[in-house]
């Protein structure tokens, strides 16, 4: 997916001004940046919820069609069960009930919720709700995945377990992913590349992460150096 010379402004606030960004197919681009610098705007434009004032967004054929969006909050239907919350996102694309059941059960099992299918969101913890949202996002047949700080406001243990669940699903079926976060560590651990926003014209910092995801360790010298650079960029933005 490519953002080509896009421009976007909210009244006097110029968020993007002929801004370009390239996200290789089936890779994860982590996007970090100070608040109000266009991270969510970028996601919404990718999802088609927002039109850029200028420029264009080009998607590969394999990225066309529907998108899966993971929000900051789980956005589950309160009066539907865990199972129904996932299965409903499949109804338009899969007419066979058996097929829908298999897919929903598979992804719910992957996030460890096989035993909670009949529960309602109000009966789940915050972490479990976000797991349902992750299962729904992966079950939904989309080749483009957009993540808007989905692991924000979770404790560190829960965050790691959700990131694990996410990566397990992603490795099983890689999709072009735009991952917005405030957390530099999270960005470096998940992304194939990290982009820092803050300048409407170009990324303040763009770094390809050339260490395989499963071999990454945040205490490695290279990772620490990247983290330090990213933090410095964010502070100075």
């Amino acid at each position: 997916m490519q953002f080509l010379e896009i421009s976007k402004r909210y009244e006097q606030n110029v968020v993007f001004d002929h801004f370009s960004l390239d996200i290789p197919v089936q890779s994860i681009l982590s996007v970090v940046g100070p608040s109000g610098e266009g991270k969510t705007t970028l996601l919404q434009m990718a999802a088609g919820l927002l039109e850029p004032d200028g420029g264009s967004i080009r998607k590969e054929t394999s990225e066309e069609g529907s998108v899966s969006y993971l929000f900051q909050e789980s956005r589950l239907l309160g009066s539907s069960t865990v199972y129904a919350n996932v299965e409903l996102a499949l109804r338009r694309s899969h007419s066979s009930e058996t097929e829908r059941r298999q897919i929903a059960l598979h992804y719910l099992a992957m996030v460890g919720l096989s035993g909670s299918l009949a529960l309602y969101p109000s009966q789940l913890s915050g972490g479990m709700r976000q797991r349902v949202a992750i299962a729904r996002a992966f079950a939904h047949p989309a080749n483009l995945m957009l993540l808007d700080e989905p692991f924000q406001s979770l404790d560190i243990k829960l965050k790691f377990s959700l990131v694990d669940a996410f990566l397990k699903l992603w490795e099983e079926q890689p999709r072009t992913t735009l991952f917005v976060t405030h957390d530099p560590k999270e960005a470096l651990m998940l992304g194939d590349a990290v982009c820092c926003l803050g300048d409407p014209k170009k990324p303040l910092w763009y770094q390809q992460i050339d260490i395989p995801r499963n071999a990454r360790n945040i205490t490695d010298a290279k990772m620490l150096a990247w983290e330090a650079t990213l933090v410095r960029t964010l502070v100075n933005a």
Binding site: S68, R75, A84, L88
Partner: peptide, 19 residues
């Protein structure tokens, strides 16, 4: 927000109404 979720996950109109 839920309405937006229904749109993004392509809920059928009848499912959106019922659920």
């Amino acid at each position: 927000n839920l309405e937006q979720m229904c749109t993004l996950y392509e809920f059928r109109p009848s499912d959106k109404l019922l659920h």
